[in-house]
Each structure stands twice: as structure tokens, then as C-alpha cells.
Design a protein around this nucleic acid. Structure first.
Lengths: 192, 192
DNA sequence: CCCGTCGTGTAGCAAGCGCTACAGTAGGAA
DNA sequence: TTCCTACTGTAGCGCTTGCTACACGACGGG
């Protein structure tokens, strides 16, 4: 059985995934959780503690779903599978939350900047691991991850602006690019 | 001579570029501008009006700097030049502000969602125009723009997390990818 | 039995928010 | 002079924010 704090952390995470992180305030959150702001501040040191916990929880969930992803057939499908995973179900909301946190951290605001740093490191490792699983060397996998992750981020940031087919086409372009760059042998040379 | 409202809009934009959009509130802004919140709300209908104006102003500035960009030598340098333009001086701050606005609009919050939509449309047109200037057909230019813009967005979102050399390498990878995909003749076929 | 700790409810504080009511002042037109 | 419009300062309303002081019940160990 989880502690009350862990229960609240999970529930608060669900709420944040639903309503966003930017305008998050204690009283509406508490009410939705069937408790009071007083209680939240009993179980968490302060709001920053709560937010950091939420971000840690979503990070854990994201990495978890990524780990459960079955190995892809090849590099190209790996990119496509990742996009599928990242835009499906609850994971899409996790990504949205990450974008919000990153935006909040852009100007150095804490605890967002620190939390985003940690989250991103874990996420990059997990994605790189998925690329390694299709035979990509470690260094190449990491390099490809940076490109793929950045593009995914950008696409999700503008997701409501582009049509679904536009998104699909762009992801395909990206997959082509990754294959062209890292697909053949273990070519790890820079190009500039 | 500009109207008082236009003066305030420019100054408020500078302030927002410096301090971010997310925590923006009228009183500190007004004080920094040497006026009062009362005055801001005299010249602008309400805070949303002000914010929308700020976003329109930054959008105009961004598109302006992009238009003044000299034509690139070829497609590959076009990508590199764009990255250079987008991460140099005041333009970097404009991008940061856009990211914030997009994050705020992610959950449909107004006026951000609408403003971001408009801003993005103008921006995409301007970038596509730059690609056209190196001989890319219109449709290909637009397609390449979506990929490049998304990747740039993502890279800037995580900019504080990656090293400068890592960023450069990724942008080079992206440039390679764009050339491989759209570089040769006017190959506009899909690949999936 | 008593006591201390854990959990909870009530009530409220100081500060900040967007916004507004009201009272002006200045300057040009009639 | 008189009036009208454009602009500005003061003061404050109603509300939300994160957070806290205080009292109370439950429960387990001595």
C-alpha cells in the first residue's frame, strides 16, 4: 500500500496532465482530489515540492512506457514507433506537460529548470536505448536521439496548428533523414 | 510619430522579451515602462489585448529580420543561416517568447492559442520564402519548413540542456537531412 | 490512564492579481 | 469664455494566491 503522499502525488499528476501545469493552483487541485490545500501542504513541503514530485512522476511514467515498447524492426520503424508511442493516449499528455515545464524553465524559474534538466536526461537515455535496440552504436544513437527528440518536441508544440497528415508526412521525412544519416553501417563521422 | 499606444506596445514587447510572458503582470510591467497599470488599461482594452499586441509585435519583428536575411548560397547553408538567424541577438528572445506563448496555448488558453496560430502562419510563410530563394519549389519549401521549424523549436526548447557543440552538430545533421530529402532536383514525392 | 504523534478542519493572513470608479488636468474648437 | 475630448493620478474593489496558526480527534506505547 502506498503512503498517502504517494497517492496524492499520483492523483495530482493525473490532474496536472488534464489541466496543465502553468495555471496550477492548490485549492482547485485539492478540491478535485477530494482534499484541501491544507492537506497538500501537510504532505508536501510547499508548492514547488509538489510540482517537482509531479514532474518526477510523469517522467517515470514516460520512461516506463518507453521501456515497455517492443523493439522496432529497423531504424526507420523505430522513429515511426517512437512517434506513435509519444502521441498515443496518456503519453501525449505527458509530453504536453513536459513542454509546459520546459517553457516555465526557459527563464530559469525553479523548480522547473532543474526538474526539466533531470527529466530530459532520463528521457534521452531511454530513447537512445531504443535506438540501440535496433543495432545503432551508442554514440550514433545518442546523436540521433537529440535530433529526433527535438523534432518531436517541436511538432508537438505546434501540434494543434498542423493537420494530421502534415504531421505524418513530416515524421516520415524525419525517419528518412535518420536512416540516411545513421541507417547504413556504423558511420559516426560528422559532416561539417 | 507613433501613437502612445504604439510606443507602449513596443516598450511592453521589450519588457516581455526580457522577462517572459508567463508570469507577466501589469503593475511591474507598467512600472518598468514608467507608467501605471491604469494607463496600460487605458490604451489597451484589457490584459489579453496587451498580450495579443505584444505577440503581434514580436511576430512582425521576427518576420522582419527573416526578410532582411540575405539569400543563402544553397539549401544546406540556408538551413544553417536560418539557425544562425534564429539564435542570434534579439531573435533568440523572440523565439523564446513564442515557445512560451505556444506552451500557454497548448491547453487552448486564449488569447495565446489564437495569437500563436496567426504568428506561426506568418513565420512558416517567411521561412518557406527563404527556401524558395535557393530554388526550392513552393511545395517542397513548405514541407521542408515544417521539419526545420519543428526541429529548431525543439532545440530551442531544450537549449539550456544541450552544449553548444551538441546543438551545432544536430543542426548540421538536420541540414544534411534536408539536402538529402529535397536537395537534388525537384523531387516532391512522398517516401512512405 | 496519559501522553505524544499523526492527520485533519477552520479560519485567516499578507500579497498580488485584473480591473474600475472618480476626480481631475490640459489643450484645442466654438 | 465655455465646452469637449484626450489623458492621467488616486484609491480601492473583489478575488485568488501560497501559506500558516490553532484547535481538535484518533490511535498506539508507556
Amino acid at each position: 500500500m502506498a503512503t498517502r503522499r504517494e497517492e496524492l502525488a499520483e492523483a495530482a499528476t493525473d490532474y496536472a496532465l488534464e489541466h496543465g501545469l502553468i495555471g496550477l493552483s492548490l485549492r482547485p487541485l485539492a478540491e478535485a482530489l477530494g482534499t484541501s490545500d491544507r492537506m497538500l501542504l501537510y504532505h508536501f513541503a510547499d508548492k514547488d515540492d509538489l510540482v517537482a514530485t509531479i514532474l518526477r512522476t510523469t517522467s517515470a511514467r514516460s520512461v516506463g512506457t518507453l521501456r515497455e515498447l517492443p523493439p522496432s524492426r529497423d531504424l526507420r520503424t523505430a522513429v515511426l514507433d517512437l512517434w506513435q508511442a509519444v502521441t498515443t493516449g496518456s503519453q501525449e499528455r505527458c509530453q504536453r506537460l513536459y513542454v509546459e515545464a520546459a517553457a516555465l524553465g526557459l527563464f530559469g524559474r525553479e523548480p522547473y529548470a532543474t526538474a526539466v534538466r533531470a527529466t530530459n536526461a532520463q528521457w534521452v537515455s531511454a530513447v537512445a536505448a531504443h535506438f540501440c535496440r535496433v543495432g545503432l552504436p551508442k554514440a550514433a544513437a545518442r546523436q540521433a536521439t537529440v535530433l529526433v527528440d527535438a523534432t518531436f518536441m517541436g511538432l508537438q508544440l505546434d501540434e494543434p496548428l498542423d493537420s494530421a497528415t502534415q504531421l505524418r508526412r513530416t515524421v516520415n521525412d524525419l525517419a528518412d533523414a535518420v536512416v540516411a544519416r545513421w541507417g547504413g553501417a556504423s558511420d559516426q563521422s560528422g559532416s561539417a
